[in-house]
Design a binder for these strands. Structure first.
Lengths: 217, 217
DNA sequence: GACACATTTCAACGACCGTTGAATACTATT
DNA sequence: AATAGTATTCAACGGTCGTTGAAATGTGTC
């Protein structure tokens, strides 16, 4: 039992991640988590100090990796043509495409994580604090890049545009089934190619419409 | 006690709405709700049949009014120039501006409701089913109007664009404090004028970029 | 093999959960 | 004033919650 390849602590985090993502923090029981993780209840409190600490650990575990690969993606498009700033589309694609790559590689794990993030982002209880704690440095880095790509853009505009982006992004990656229901099967939330082709275009157009002087009507 | 102006049933719904919006369905206790409503615990089960039924009643109460005024707003822009379909901006403004008007009139009540909807929309547990049940007829009506405004648009594009819109909209109206934190006070989630001036423009640009042949680069 | 130390098991604590049945108070009609 | 129906109170139920202390087991070191 408790194979080395999947140590207990990781199994607990996996189980907690999936259950929290599906039903939220409060409705999931520590006993449910530990049953799914095939471990005794008390082990949750040995490896983590409380249910809440376990929740934070779930969030933190993948946040670091996520921030790293997104930052790499941004650096890459910035280095691609060092004399001029990257386009808005490129910056936004660097923000969103890493998520799609992760989903392609380990779909289940990251899908649960993104569903969890969507709930956190949209919760008044946690949205403000937790998103700030885990993602602000990276987000500020992207906003800085966007400012360079949109030199005529006002300060407030950038933040509002990012806020709209954030809502669209988290809902899309949450895969709640809403899109599938509404479109009566014509679209699938899990269709990553559709997301990749459409989301950066949609969001970049929004940024440009608010942040740069319109050429004409 | 239990003044006619604020009957018990309504007070229970108000209290439940505020608490559910703040902390989610599961972490709120029926006892907490009834304490806030200044009524005995058992009354929750007299006026509603269960905690879950109370939750549904909270969602349903304002959904009807909301659907009505949004539909009116859409009809109004459609009737404004009966010979041609309204523009994408006008349609989206008809979808979003009624929310702002409600917030202007009874800010607190509707603010709690929108925060609740944001959580429901982003929950895998509820997002698919509940949003469909309460809002699909209206949403389909708007999608139909958008189809007319964007005759060259593919079927899938419209649903994806609406999905992006839905995410941006629900997060924005949830007022989680995230925008305020990220912008370090430069923007306020509660600044309704900012939303009205920016959101329809941003979203309409996204629709047009994906749904209509680009004039140039 | 004795030792320290990390990990796991087991049983239980008090608190609080959603829910209910029976008794009481209110309100309006006759 | 008697009655019927609605609204409210009170006390409690079985169950489950997060959490813990103490005992048992495993693991590597000298």
């Amino acid at each position: 039992m408790a194979s080395r390849a999947h140590p207990t602590k990781e199994r607990i985090l996996d189980a907690a991640e999936e259950l929290f993502a599906g039903e939220g923090f409060a409705s999931v029981t520590v006993r449910q988590i530990m049953k799914k993780a095939n471990a005794d209840v008390a082990l949750a409190y040995y490896h983590f100090d409380s249910k809440r600490d376990l929740f934070d650990a779930v969030l933190l575990r993948r946040a670091e990796h996520l921030n790293k690969i997104r930052l790499d993606a941004l650096r890459e498009v910035e280095d691609r043509h060092p004399d001029e700033p990257p386009s808005v589309e490129e910056i936004i694609a660097a923000f969103t495409n890493p998520l799609l790559e992760l989903l392609g590689r380990e779909h289940e794990a990251w899908q649960h994580y993104f569903a969890l993030i969507a709930q956190v982002n949209n919760s008044p209880e946690w949205g403000g604090e937790l998103m700030t704690r885990y993602f602000d440095p990276l987000v500020n880095r992207f906003i800085e890049a966007l400012r360079k790509a949109l030199p005529d853009c006002g300060e407030e505009e950038i933040f509002w545009c990012y806020h709209f982006l954030s809502g669209a992004l988290t809902l899309t990656f949450a895969e709640t089934g809403r899109l599938d229901n509404l479109s009566e099967g014509r679209c699938s939330s899990a269709d990553m190619d559709s997301i990749m082709q459409r989301m950066p275009v949609f969001l970049a157009a929004g940024f440009k419409s608010l942040c740069q002087p319109k050429p004409a009507n």
